[in-house]
Design a binder for these strands. Structure first.
Lengths: 130, 130, 130, 130
DNA sequence: GTGGTCTAGACCACG
DNA sequence: GTGGTCTAGACCACA
């Protein structure tokens, strides 16, 4: 479980942790029901406060990506997420904005779509055999 | 120039204004060299503090979407933006995260691509004939 | 004696066990003086630590739902409980909160009362003929 | 905005604050769009840490009872809550348990229903004319 | 040893 | 002045 943090980034640390974990789940580096490191453990490894990691885990739990199993700590939840109409709407909004910016930055449609296909094809491919 | 604001949204107001303007430029509701409303005017119309609008315009200027014309105030800059390697990288990062979330939310690849194509095709089509 | 557990629930496991037992007594699935499974037995059956079940039984004993019979182990106590003014007050408090939430969730009074009547009518009806 | 806290209660403080606020909204002591005291203000008044109040507000926000309006701070949300199927199910579960306990405590059905009716009739009656 | 709670103090972004 | 973030250290409930 490798977390890339940039302390100079304007993004808050707990958000960066969340995003790392979401990507790791999507790509398959973290598989369903796999335990994540304990908050203390991860906090020590990446050099941040325990509460910061805790906040990340908590939000991921609220958003349905993780469960807190009282025996195993934080584990990856069953996916795909359910009851996600609002989530889909949020994704559409973000896509709209993202594409507006890409267009205005001179990124061609084909180039954008190609990028998306690559990211999509990268999802779920890692065989995790720990 | 219609701005949709949600004061209950966790997004800050100046960000919402920025995003509205970026989308409007992309779709063609605001065209190159067109003047935006004055800070004071826009602030009054949408019911926010003058400094808030000012902050939006400023950041848009710094990001190359607007520039300040002494006679016409804030105007839409020439586009597409140049020298934007960092911008493209930022877009890729955001696309990566967005697609991870879409995948984990059960959105199919085809559906996602279809949505992207629609947004892309919506860019630049409005004939602004003020 | 069927126990429904959800290890992902934020409710602690021993609380879930307690609540299962209380409901079973109320509905009549467990009748007065009936023995419960031994701590060891129940722990094995439901896949939790022995101390966890022990804690549940202990609290149920302290609250008057169970008592310990040297020959039969934990047995369901005589009911209804007496000397329970504080218990009644606790129930009123919880009802107050519950109804506040139901009201704010748009649940109509009639609907709520109907639900209560059904649960009440379900109490004590099971003929336990083990 | 009066908050009753019991520091000796096993209930955590932030939960007690939440419950006080929910009851106040239901009864009408807090009306829709009314601002709540700032976290610092309330924290000082009731003698707890700022973060404790913050946690209460945050959870109430996540559960839909409050919005954070960036101009007015925390305000009471439009009610009743929407998308609340899971909420209703949770309420039913809690009602089931509560009624089991009431039954086993010797509370008669009529008495319980009468109590519920009183609480329900108390909802929404306070005219807040600040 | 796990996450959850509470306190405390500091800084920041926002409006 | 508002809430949001981060750090830090302590205690507790749970399993």
């Amino acid at each position: 479980m490798k977390i890339n943090l940039d302390f100079n980034n304007e993004k808050s640390i707990y958000i960066q942790i969340k995003e790392n974990i979401i990507k790791a789940i999507a790509v398959g580096n973290l598989s369903i029901n796999q335990s994540l490191p304990s908050v203390r453990n991860m906090a020590e490894n990446i050099g941040v406060n325990l509460h910061t990691v805790n906040k990340s885990y908590n939000e991921l739990k609220n958003e349905g990506y993780l469960h807190i199993d009282r025996r195993k700590g934080a584990v990856v939840a069953d996916l795909p997420l359910k009851d996600n109409e609002t989530k889909i709407n949020e994704i559409k909004d973000r896509a709209h904005l993202l594409i507006s910016e890409a267009y205005l930055s001179g990124m061609e449609k084909d180039e954008f779509i190609k990028m998306c296909l690559e990211y999509y094809d990268g999802c779920g491919v890692v065989k995790n055999d720990r």
